[in-house]
Protein backbone atom coordinates (compact mmCIF):
# COMPACT_ATOMS: atom_id res chain seq x y z
CA UNK A 1 0.00 0.00 0.00
CA UNK A 2 3.00 2.32 0.31
CA UNK A 3 3.00 5.21 -2.06
CA UNK A 4 -0.77 5.62 -1.96
CA UNK A 5 -2.01 8.13 0.56
CA UNK A 6 -4.23 6.36 3.12
CA UNK A 7 -7.80 7.57 3.59
CA UNK A 8 -7.48 7.50 7.35
CA UNK A 9 -4.24 7.77 9.23
CA UNK A 10 -4.11 7.39 13.02
CA UNK A 11 -0.95 8.16 14.98
CA UNK A 12 -0.26 7.62 18.68
CA UNK A 13 -3.92 7.99 19.68
CA UNK A 14 -4.49 8.07 23.46
CA UNK A 15 -7.38 8.54 25.85
CA UNK A 16 -7.67 8.11 29.62
CA UNK A 17 -10.73 8.08 31.86
CA UNK A 18 -9.99 9.16 35.41
CA UNK A 19 -6.48 7.78 35.37
CA UNK A 20 -7.38 4.58 33.53
CA UNK A 21 -5.68 4.43 30.15
CA UNK A 22 -8.39 3.21 27.81
CA UNK A 23 -6.38 3.69 24.62
CA UNK A 24 -2.69 4.40 24.29
CA UNK A 25 -0.23 4.72 21.43
CA UNK A 26 -2.54 3.37 18.76
CA UNK A 27 -1.33 3.94 15.18
CA UNK A 28 -2.63 2.52 11.91
CA UNK A 29 -3.73 3.44 8.37
CA UNK A 30 -6.74 2.46 6.29
CA UNK A 31 -6.52 2.56 2.50
CA UNK A 32 -9.32 3.20 0.01
CA UNK A 33 -11.32 0.03 -0.65
CA UNK A 34 -9.74 -1.75 2.28
CA UNK A 35 -11.75 -3.67 4.91
CA UNK A 36 -9.92 -3.29 8.20
CA UNK A 37 -11.19 -5.19 11.26
CA UNK A 38 -10.49 -4.05 14.82
CA UNK A 39 -10.84 -6.89 17.31
CA UNK A 40 -10.01 -7.52 20.94
CA UNK A 41 -11.51 -8.55 24.29
CA UNK A 42 -14.29 -6.52 25.92
CA UNK A 43 -12.88 -3.40 27.50
CA UNK A 44 -9.82 -3.43 25.26
CA UNK A 45 -10.66 0.07 24.03
CA UNK A 46 -12.35 -0.66 20.70
CA UNK A 47 -15.39 1.54 21.33
CA UNK A 48 -13.27 4.30 22.82
CA UNK A 49 -11.10 4.19 19.71
CA UNK A 50 -14.14 4.32 17.48
CA UNK A 51 -15.73 7.18 19.35
CA UNK A 52 -12.56 9.22 18.98
CA UNK A 53 -12.52 8.65 15.23
CA UNK A 54 -16.22 9.51 14.96
CA UNK A 55 -16.00 12.64 17.10
CA UNK A 56 -18.12 11.37 20.00
CA UNK A 57 -15.01 11.58 22.21
CA UNK A 58 -12.04 13.94 21.96
CA UNK A 59 -8.63 12.23 22.14
CA UNK A 60 -6.19 13.29 24.88
CA UNK A 61 -3.36 13.18 22.37
CA UNK A 62 -2.43 11.79 18.98
CA UNK A 63 -3.27 12.62 15.39
CA UNK A 64 -6.24 11.54 13.30
CA UNK A 65 -5.88 12.52 9.67
CA UNK A 66 -8.57 12.06 7.04
CA UNK A 67 -7.39 12.56 3.46
CA UNK A 68 -4.51 14.69 4.66
CA UNK A 69 -6.51 16.93 7.02
CA UNK A 70 -6.75 16.54 10.78
CA UNK A 71 -10.09 15.54 12.29
CA UNK A 72 -8.85 14.94 15.82
CA UNK A 73 -11.27 16.54 18.26
CA UNK A 74 -13.72 17.59 15.53
CA UNK A 75 -17.46 17.24 16.24
CA UNK A 76 -19.39 14.30 14.75
CA UNK A 77 -21.29 16.60 12.40
CA UNK A 78 -18.06 18.12 11.10
CA UNK A 79 -16.58 14.67 10.54
CA UNK A 80 -19.69 13.68 8.55
CA UNK A 81 -19.21 16.72 6.32
CA UNK A 82 -15.63 15.60 5.68
CA UNK A 83 -16.85 12.33 4.23
CA UNK A 84 -17.18 9.82 7.04
CA UNK A 85 -20.23 7.54 7.41
CA UNK A 86 -20.88 5.89 10.74
CA UNK A 87 -22.93 2.99 12.08
CA UNK A 88 -23.33 2.31 15.77
CA UNK A 89 -23.06 -0.74 17.99
CA UNK A 90 -26.67 -0.22 19.03
CA UNK A 91 -28.42 0.96 15.89
CA UNK A 92 -29.25 4.64 15.89
CA UNK A 93 -32.03 5.56 13.48
CA UNK A 94 -35.02 7.89 13.67
CA UNK A 95 -37.78 5.65 14.99
CA UNK A 96 -40.68 7.96 14.13
CA UNK A 97 -39.67 8.26 10.49
CA UNK A 98 -40.05 5.79 7.68
CA UNK A 99 -37.05 4.00 6.24
CA UNK A 100 -37.11 6.32 3.23
CA UNK A 101 -37.41 9.43 5.39
CA UNK A 102 -34.40 8.34 7.44
CA UNK A 103 -32.27 8.33 4.33
CA UNK A 104 -33.92 11.50 3.01
CA UNK A 105 -33.02 13.26 6.26
CA UNK A 106 -29.36 12.34 5.78
CA UNK A 107 -29.48 13.52 2.16
CA UNK A 108 -31.19 16.79 3.12
CA UNK A 109 -28.55 17.44 5.73
CA UNK A 110 -25.79 16.56 3.30
CA UNK A 111 -27.20 19.04 0.76
CA UNK A 112 -27.32 21.74 3.45
CA UNK A 113 -31.11 22.01 3.33
CA UNK A 114 -31.99 21.13 6.92
CA UNK A 115 -32.84 24.70 7.90
CA UNK A 116 -35.70 25.10 5.42
CA UNK A 117 -38.80 25.66 7.59
CA UNK A 118 -41.48 25.55 4.90
CA UNK A 119 -40.97 23.11 2.02
CA UNK A 120 -42.40 19.59 2.46
CA UNK A 121 -39.48 17.35 3.41
CA UNK A 122 -41.08 14.20 2.03
CA UNK A 123 -40.60 15.38 -1.54
CA UNK A 124 -36.85 15.89 -1.18
CA UNK A 125 -34.21 13.56 -2.64
CA UNK A 126 -36.72 10.73 -3.15
CA UNK A 127 -34.88 9.13 -6.06
CA UNK A 128 -31.47 9.30 -4.40
CA UNK A 129 -32.89 7.85 -1.18
CA UNK A 130 -34.51 4.98 -2.99
CA UNK A 131 -31.34 4.27 -4.93
CA UNK A 132 -29.43 3.95 -1.65
CA UNK A 133 -32.14 1.72 -0.21
CA UNK A 134 -32.04 -0.47 -3.30
CA UNK A 135 -28.30 -0.81 -2.82
CA UNK A 136 -28.74 -2.26 0.68
CA UNK A 137 -31.84 -4.26 -0.22
CA UNK A 138 -34.34 -2.24 1.80
CA UNK A 139 -36.38 -0.64 -0.99
CA UNK A 140 -39.39 -2.92 -0.41
CA UNK A 141 -39.63 -1.67 3.16
CA UNK A 142 -39.08 2.01 2.34
CA UNK A 143 -42.45 3.09 3.70
CA UNK A 144 -42.26 1.28 7.04
CA UNK A 145 -41.42 3.05 10.30
CA UNK A 146 -37.90 2.38 11.59
CA UNK A 147 -39.36 1.86 15.06
CA UNK A 148 -40.95 -1.45 14.01
CA UNK A 149 -38.20 -2.92 11.81
CA UNK A 150 -36.39 -6.17 12.59
CA UNK A 151 -32.90 -5.62 13.98
CA UNK A 152 -31.08 -6.95 10.92
CA UNK A 153 -33.09 -4.60 8.70
CA UNK A 154 -32.26 -1.65 10.92
CA UNK A 155 -28.58 -2.40 10.42
CA UNK A 156 -29.14 -2.15 6.67
CA UNK A 157 -30.98 1.15 7.02
CA UNK A 158 -28.10 2.47 9.08
CA UNK A 159 -25.74 1.46 6.32
CA UNK A 160 -27.84 3.33 3.76
CA UNK A 161 -27.81 6.43 5.98
CA UNK A 162 -24.05 6.11 6.44
CA UNK A 163 -23.62 6.01 2.66
CA UNK A 164 -25.74 9.12 2.07
CA UNK A 165 -22.83 11.55 2.13
CA UNK A 166 -20.86 9.52 -0.44
CA UNK A 167 -18.30 8.68 2.24
CA UNK A 168 -14.62 7.99 1.72
CA UNK A 169 -14.51 6.20 5.07
CA UNK A 170 -17.08 4.01 6.80
CA UNK A 171 -16.82 3.46 10.55
CA UNK A 172 -18.86 0.44 11.60
CA UNK A 173 -19.02 -0.46 15.29
CA UNK A 174 -20.10 -4.11 15.64
CA UNK A 175 -22.03 -4.04 12.37
CA UNK A 176 -23.40 -7.57 12.75
CA UNK A 177 -24.09 -7.73 16.50
CA UNK A 178 -27.47 -9.28 17.20
CA UNK A 179 -27.93 -10.71 13.70
CA UNK A 180 -28.42 -14.33 12.66
CA UNK A 181 -25.27 -16.05 11.24
CA UNK A 182 -26.43 -16.04 7.59
CA UNK A 183 -27.48 -12.38 7.86
CA UNK A 184 -24.05 -11.48 9.20
CA UNK A 185 -22.22 -12.95 6.27
CA UNK A 186 -24.65 -11.38 3.81
CA UNK A 187 -24.39 -7.91 5.32
CA UNK A 188 -20.62 -7.91 5.42
CA UNK A 189 -20.42 -9.28 1.88
CA UNK A 190 -22.60 -6.35 0.84
CA UNK A 191 -20.35 -3.88 2.67
CA UNK A 192 -17.26 -5.41 1.06
CA UNK A 193 -18.84 -5.18 -2.38
CA UNK A 194 -19.77 -1.50 -1.94
CA UNK A 195 -16.37 -0.69 -0.46
CA UNK A 196 -14.53 -2.23 -3.39
CA UNK A 197 -16.83 -0.69 -6.00
CA UNK A 198 -16.70 2.82 -4.60
CA UNK A 199 -13.19 2.72 -3.13
CA UNK A 200 -14.47 3.35 0.40
CA UNK A 201 -12.18 2.57 3.29
CA UNK A 202 -13.98 0.52 5.94
CA UNK A 203 -12.97 0.20 9.57
CA UNK A 204 -15.11 -2.17 11.64
CA UNK A 205 -15.11 -3.84 15.03
CA UNK A 206 -16.47 -7.34 15.26
CA UNK A 207 -16.92 -10.15 17.75
CA UNK A 208 -17.76 -12.87 15.27
CA UNK A 209 -14.44 -14.32 14.09
CA UNK A 210 -16.16 -16.01 11.15
CA UNK A 211 -17.12 -12.57 9.85
CA UNK A 212 -13.67 -11.16 10.54
CA UNK A 213 -11.75 -13.91 8.83
CA UNK A 214 -14.15 -14.06 5.90
CA UNK A 215 -14.24 -10.34 5.07
CA UNK A 216 -11.34 -8.42 6.56
CA UNK A 217 -8.38 -7.58 4.33
CA UNK A 218 -6.39 -6.78 7.43
CA UNK A 219 -6.92 -7.24 11.18
CA UNK A 220 -5.90 -5.05 14.13
CA UNK A 221 -5.92 -6.56 17.60
CA UNK A 222 -6.36 -4.28 20.60
CA UNK A 223 -5.68 -5.40 24.15
CA UNK A 224 -5.82 -3.19 27.23
CA UNK A 225 -5.69 -0.10 25.06
CA UNK A 226 -2.67 -1.11 22.97
CA UNK A 227 -2.36 -2.57 19.50
CA UNK A 228 -0.79 -6.00 19.82
CA UNK A 229 -1.11 -7.16 16.23
CA UNK A 230 -1.65 -5.69 12.77
CA UNK A 231 -1.61 -7.90 9.71
CA UNK A 232 -3.50 -10.11 7.29
CA UNK A 233 -6.11 -12.44 8.86
CA UNK A 234 -4.14 -15.67 8.60
CA UNK A 235 -1.10 -14.14 10.25
CA UNK A 236 -3.14 -12.67 13.08
CA UNK A 237 -4.97 -15.93 13.55
CA UNK A 238 -1.69 -17.78 14.14
CA UNK A 239 -0.06 -15.04 16.19
CA UNK A 240 0.89 -16.50 19.57
CA UNK A 241 0.27 -13.26 21.45
CA UNK A 242 -3.20 -12.84 19.97
CA UNK A 243 -4.12 -16.40 20.76
CA UNK A 244 -3.01 -15.87 24.34
CA UNK A 245 -5.13 -12.80 25.08
CA UNK A 246 -8.01 -13.18 22.73
CA UNK A 247 -8.50 -16.10 20.40
CA UNK A 248 -7.43 -18.66 22.97
CA UNK A 249 -4.69 -21.24 22.75
CA UNK A 250 -6.57 -24.41 23.47
CA UNK A 251 -10.14 -24.24 22.33
CA UNK A 252 -11.54 -27.60 23.39
CA UNK A 253 -14.38 -27.41 20.92
CA UNK A 254 -12.32 -26.44 17.91
CA UNK A 255 -9.75 -29.13 18.54
CA UNK A 256 -12.34 -31.92 18.62
Amino acid sequence: MSGIEPVLSVRELAKSFGGVRAVQGVSFDVAAGEMLALIGPNGAGKSTCFNMLGGQLAPDSGAVTLLGRSIAGAKPREIWRRGVGRTFQITATFASMSVRENVQMALISQAGGAWNPLAPARARHVAAAEALLAQVGMLEQAGRACGILAYGDLKRVELAIALANGPRLLLMDEPTAGMAPQERIALMALVARIAKAEAIAVLFTEHDMDVVFAHADRVLVLDRGRLIADGPPHAVRNDAGVRAVYLGTDDGAEGA
Binding site: W80, A92, F94, M97, M105, S109, P117, N165
Partner: peptide, 22 residues
Protein backbone atom coordinates in the same frame (compact mmCIF):
# COMPACT_ATOMS: atom_id res chain seq x y z
CA UNK B 1 -40.46 20.75 6.57
CA UNK B 2 -36.80 19.75 6.59
CA UNK B 3 -36.34 21.81 9.76
CA UNK B 4 -39.21 19.95 11.41
CA UNK B 5 -37.70 16.65 10.34
CA UNK B 6 -34.31 17.69 11.69
CA UNK B 7 -36.04 18.56 14.96
CA UNK B 8 -37.63 15.12 15.14
CA UNK B 9 -34.32 13.55 14.16
CA UNK B 10 -32.71 15.23 17.16
CA UNK B 11 -35.48 13.93 19.40
CA UNK B 12 -35.45 10.35 18.06
CA UNK B 13 -31.69 9.90 18.15
CA UNK B 14 -29.34 12.80 18.90
CA UNK B 15 -26.42 10.45 18.29
CA UNK B 16 -27.54 9.67 14.75
CA UNK B 17 -28.62 13.25 14.04
CA UNK B 18 -25.19 14.61 14.94
CA UNK B 19 -23.57 11.83 12.93
CA UNK B 20 -25.38 13.00 9.78
CA UNK B 21 -24.37 16.60 10.19
CA UNK B 22 -27.34 18.05 12.10
Amino acid sequence: SPLGYALRAGRDSPLRAEAIGI
